[in-house]
Simulated assay, not measured.
Amino acid sequence: MELIETPNALGEKNKHVQKALSFGKTKVVNIQLQAGEKIAEHDSAADVIIIVRSGKVSFDVEGQTVEVSPENILHMDPKEKHSLTAIEPSDLLVLQITS
C-alpha cells in the first residue's frame, strides 16, 4: 500500500503539476489550475483518463469541446490532440496508460 499526497496548491500559486505516481505502464499526474488557466494543445502516446476531483475544465479534443467535472470522466485514445482550459479553479488527475 502507498498513500500519495496531492495537497491543494491552488491558494499558493497558479498552475501546479505534480507527478503523483508511476507503476507498470501507468503514470498518474495531479494538475491544479486557476480559472482561466490553459494547457496548450498536445497529445500523448498513451490512453489518457481525466478525473476532475473539483472544479470544471473545458477540453478541446480533435476539434470537439466537452466539459469535464466531478460528475464525469474523460477518456482519450493515444495521439488525440487536446488542449484544456479551467472554467473554475480545478483539481484533476491524469492517468496515462500505455498498452
Results as ranks from 00 to 15, higher is better:
Gly63Val: 00
Gly36Glu: 13
Ala20Pro: 03
Thr65Gly: 05
Glu71Ile: 07
Gly24Pro: 03
Asn72Glu: 01
Asp60Gly: 04
Gly55Leu: 14
Ile51His: 08
Glu71Arg: 14
Glu37Leu: 01
His82Leu: 04
Ser44Asn: 09
His16Trp: 02
Lys56Ala: 15
Pro70Gly: 13
Gly24Ile: 00
Thr85Phe: 03
Asp43His: 14
Ile31Phe: 14
Thr65His: 05
Asp43Leu: 05
Asn30Ser: 03
Leu3Thr: 07
Ile39Lys: 03
Leu92Tyr: 09
Glu88Asp: 15
Lys15Asn: 05
Arg53Glu: 12
Val57Trp: 10
Glu37Val: 01
Ile51Ser: 11
Thr85Arg: 08
Gln64Arg: 08
Leu92Glu: 10
Glu88Arg: 13
Asn30Leu: 01
Gly63Ala: 00
Glu80Cys: 14
Lys27Pro: 00
Pro7Tyr: 11
Pro78Arg: 11
Val52Ala: 07
Leu10Ile: 10
Ala20Ser: 15
Val94Pro: 12
Gln32Asp: 10
Val52Thr: 09
Ala40Leu: 12
Val66Phe: 02
Ser58Cys: 12
Leu95Cys: 01
Lys56Cys: 11
Lys27His: 10
Val29Phe: 07
Thr65Met: 08
Ile50Cys: 09
Glu88Pro: 12
Asp60Cys: 09
Thr6Pro: 00
Ala35Ser: 15
Glu67Asp: 15
Leu21Ala: 09
Ser99His: 15
Glu2Met: 09
Thr6Val: 04
Asp47Ile: 11
Ile49Pro: 02
Gln32Val: 08
Pro78Tyr: 07
Met76Cys: 10
Ser69Asn: 02
Asn72Gln: 02
Ile39Arg: 07
Leu21Met: 08
Ala86Glu: 05
Gly24Arg: 04
Gln34Ala: 08
Gln18Val: 02
Asn8Lys: 04
Ser99Asp: 13
Asp77Arg: 05
Ile73Trp: 01
Lys25Asp: 09
Leu33Lys: 04
Gly11Thr: 06
Ser69Ala: 02
Asp91Trp: 01
Ser90Leu: 01
Ala46Ile: 05
Ser83Thr: 15
Ile31His: 07
Ala86Asn: 07
Glu88Asn: 14
Met76Ile: 12
Ile87Ser: 03
His42Arg: 13
Ala45Ser: 11
Ser54Lys: 15
Gly63Lys: 01
Ser22Lys: 08
Ala86Cys: 03
Phe59Leu: 04
Leu10Pro: 06
Phe23Pro: 02
Leu92Lys: 04
Lys81Gln: 08
Thr26Cys: 10
Ile49Met: 15
Ile87Thr: 03
Lys13Asp: 00
Lys19Pro: 10
Ile49Asp: 03
Gly63His: 00
Leu95Lys: 01
Glu88Tyr: 11
Gly24His: 03
Asp91Lys: 01
Ile4Gly: 00
Glu67Tyr: 14
Ala86Pro: 06
Val52Ser: 06
Asp47Asn: 14
Glu71Asp: 14
Ile87Gly: 04
Gly36Tyr: 14
Ala35Phe: 07
Val17Arg: 01
Phe59His: 05
Asn14Asp: 11
Ala20Val: 13
Thr98Phe: 10
Glu62Ile: 02
Leu84Tyr: 15
Ile4Asp: 00
Ser54Arg: 15
Glu2Asp: 06
Ile51Gln: 12
Met1Asn: 02
Pro78Met: 10
Ala40Pro: 08
Ser90Asn: 02
Ile97Thr: 15
Asn14Pro: 02
Gln96Val: 00
Leu10Ala: 04
Thr98Pro: 04
Gly11Asp: 05
Ala20His: 07
Ser44Gly: 05
Gln32His: 12
Thr65Glu: 13
His42Ser: 06
Ser99Gln: 13
Glu41Asp: 13
Leu10Gly: 06
